[in-house]
């Protein structure tokens, strides 16, 4: 039992790495369709990664060893964070390595190195991207944790497995707090994964970019790792949102049929979420940097209302 659970956990971790480019490809495809374009093929993200891994890696003269280590640290830390989030089944052993606060911490570790790498070469863009990224992260983190606290106070646990389990056990309950927490997490996810309206993943217009500014100096396999880590992060937030708020379908027993159902369910949920993201990116415009705090304040307000709603309306006196 224990060995199978570990094997499954490793398989799930590998699935995160394997599926991440697909979600990005899907979002791009839907977005292109909405804009009356045909768009790149669904598997284009895989081809890009393959091509980048084959290319020569160039590093600036001014770069320190940290610059070369950073892509690996960023990739591994993001991947570790993803491992703790239930994708197919609850109660896998990797879920106990890290609870949701550790997941936030691991993402912060990845961001720390990303920002340092941006500042390493000594160009203006890198510093600009690092400064802005840290600001956005600083404002997003309280909202994120507040939303998570609401979940945790309902489930009396910060382990995501237990949260999902508790949610499944309670059946269908209309909780005002979950509604607000969902809203807050959606906004935070947009900010943290660098999507419109906070950042534009497709732009290389120097003054508006955040994430792209930090990885401007990367090429070859370093760039591939950075891009891949960003894709895993998007998948991570997607799975976090769909599996915590709509956990139905996820396997509670480690049986092949349940796991198959869990896989099908999560894929369908992610496809829907990806489509929603694509619609959102199509109808919204990117904000100025100093509008972002207002955006994230809204996320914090939603999370706060979720918490207050939980205390006032759900528990009673």
């Amino acid at each position: 039992m224990n060995a199978t659970a570990w094997l499954l956990a490793i398989a799930q971790a590998l699935l995160y790495v394997a599926l991440a480019p697909l979600l990005v490809g899907w979002v791009r495809k839907v977005k292109a369709r909405l804009q009356n374009r045909r768009g790149p093929p669904l598997l284009q993200a895989y081809r890009d990664l393959y091509k980048l891994f084959g290319k020569e890696t160039r590093v600036a003269h001014t770069a320190s060893p940290l610059f070369r280590a950073a892509p690996y640290v960023v990739f591994i830390a993001t991947w570790l964070a993803a491992m703790a989030i239930p994708l197919l089944a609850v109660d896998l052993p990797t879920a106990a390595i890290a609870d949701i606060i550790v997941v936030v911490g691991l993402l912060a570790l990845a961001r720390f190195f990303l920002a340092l790498a941006g500042m390493d070469v000594g160009t203006a863009f890198g510093g600009m991207g690092a400064s802005r990224e840290m600001l956005i992260a600083a404002l997003a983190e309280p909202a994120m944790l507040m939303a998570v606290f609401t979940l945790a106070m309902t489930a009396h646990s910060t382990n995501l497995s237990s949260v999902v389990d508790a949610h499944l056990a309670a059946g269908l309950v209309l909780r005002p707090s979950y509604l607000f927490a969902l809203g807050a997490l959606l906004l935070v996810a947009l900010a943290e994964t660098g999507r419109i309206p906070v950042d534009n993943p497709a732009t290389h217009l120097e003054l508006t970019m955040v994430h792209e500014a930090m990885i401007l100096e990367y090429s070859g396999r370093h760039l591939a790792l950075m891009e891949w880590a960003a894709q895993i992060k998007l998948l991570l937030y997607g799975v976090l949102i769909v599996n915590v708020f709509l956990p139905w379908g996820i396997a509670r027993e480690l049986l092949p049929a349940d796991l198959g159902l869990g896989f099908a369910a999560v894929v369908v949920k992610l496809l829907l979420l990806g489509a929603v993201l694509a619609v959102g990116e199509t109808v919204l415009a990117k904000m100025r940097l100093f509008r972002v705090p207002a955006f994230l304040n809204l996320a914090l307000l939603l999370a706060l209302l979720g918490l207050l709603g939980h205390v006032i309306l759900e528990v009673g006196a």
Partner: peptide, 26 residues
């Protein structure tokens, strides 16, 4: 009294009231 013991319709009232509060903030 916890929310899980209420029937769905009454939960819906609570959700609506919470959204009314949110519109106040808006």
């Amino acid at each position: 009294m916890s929310i899980t013991t209420l029937p769905l319709l009454q939960q819906l009232v609570l959700v609506l009231a919470a959204i009314v509060l949110f519109t106040s903030f808006v």
